[in-house]
Amino acid sequence: MQIDANIAAKAQKIKFLILDVDGVLTDNRLYYSDDGIETKTFYTRDGHGMVMLKKSGVDIGIITGRKSQLVANRCRDLKIEHLYQGVPDKLPSFLDLVSKLGLELDEIGYVGDDILDLPILKRVGLSVTPADGEDEVKSRVDYVSKYIGGKGVVREVCEIIMRSQGTFQQHMDFYLRDLED
């Protein structure tokens, strides 16, 4: 993976990554059953990227405008403790999280796909949108992923951060290790 020097310099500083859900962790579609049950699809490689990133020492949070039990369940599965749901104006939740964490803005990365993400995207150290993010967002972020929402954008960002911080190889070494009899 070739990483632009400017993006790598920003990614080296990241201690906390915040993600939107719809259009970032999912394909931006909502599915409803006849009885009104909402479902979403999550990409497992994105999930594993988050697991590796957390093991590398970068924590993760989620701020989403919608509220659903499935997102809470996914966060529980991935051991994501910082979850803000049902917040269409995301900036107050972001500022609350920054205050709780005691981090500098350049130590925070954010991945968002729509204009409601712009108040956060313009404040963080590394701002990213998926390849299918809104044009108004694409023109205002540090990096436009080569992947669309729900299909690898989060994994790519996690790998960019880990590679820039020199922690990716430890995960490769773990999976490529020789097992002794």
Rank of each mutant, 00 (worst) to 15 (best):
G166S: 06
L25P: 03
I37N: 09
K10G: 01
L19Y: 00
I63C: 08
V111I: 12
K13L: 03
H48Y: 15
K122M: 09
L91R: 07
L97E: 08
G86V: 06
R74P: 00
E104Q: 15
L30I: 14
D114M: 00
I115G: 01
V87Y: 06
S139W: 00
E81S: 14
D96W: 00
K146H: 09
M52C: 12
E38Q: 14
A72I: 13
A8C: 05
I60Y: 02
R155F: 01
D4F: 00
V21T: 07
Q85T: 13
G133I: 01
V24Y: 01
K151W: 04
Q69G: 14
K151S: 09
E159D: 07
D77L: 15
V144C: 11
S99R: 05
T44G: 12
L53M: 07
Q170K: 15
Q2P: 05
L176P: 15
L91C: 09
A11F: 04
G65E: 08
L30H: 12
D89P: 14
R177E: 10
G166F: 09
R177I: 05
R123I: 10
G86S: 11
E136S: 09
L101T: 03
V144T: 14
V98P: 02
F174T: 12
G102R: 07
M162N: 03
G149N: 05
L53W: 03
G102W: 00
D117F: 10
L103F: 09
E136G: 04
G57Y: 12
L179V: 11
I14F: 02
D59W: 15
G65W: 08
N73W: 13
Y147C: 11
D117Y: 10
G47H: 05
Q12Y: 00
Q12V: 03
V124H: 02
K122D: 02
S99I: 01
D59Q: 11
I80Y: 01
D46R: 05
K138I: 04
L25S: 04
R66F: 03
L19G: 01
V128E: 01
V157Y: 11
G150F: 03
Q170I: 11
R155I: 02
V128H: 01
E104R: 14
C75R: 10
T64R: 09
Q165W: 06
S68I: 05
Y143V: 08
Q85C: 12
Q165E: 10
L25C: 07
V124F: 06
K79P: 02
I148Q: 10
L103V: 03
Q12A: 12
S99W: 15
G112Y: 00
I63L: 09
A72M: 11
C158L: 02
M52P: 00
K122R: 12
D22A: 02
K146P: 00
S93H: 06
M52K: 11
I108H: 10
I18R: 02
E180Q: 13
V141S: 09
D113Q: 07
V71I: 15
A131S: 12
N6T: 14
T129G: 11
R123N: 11
L70P: 14
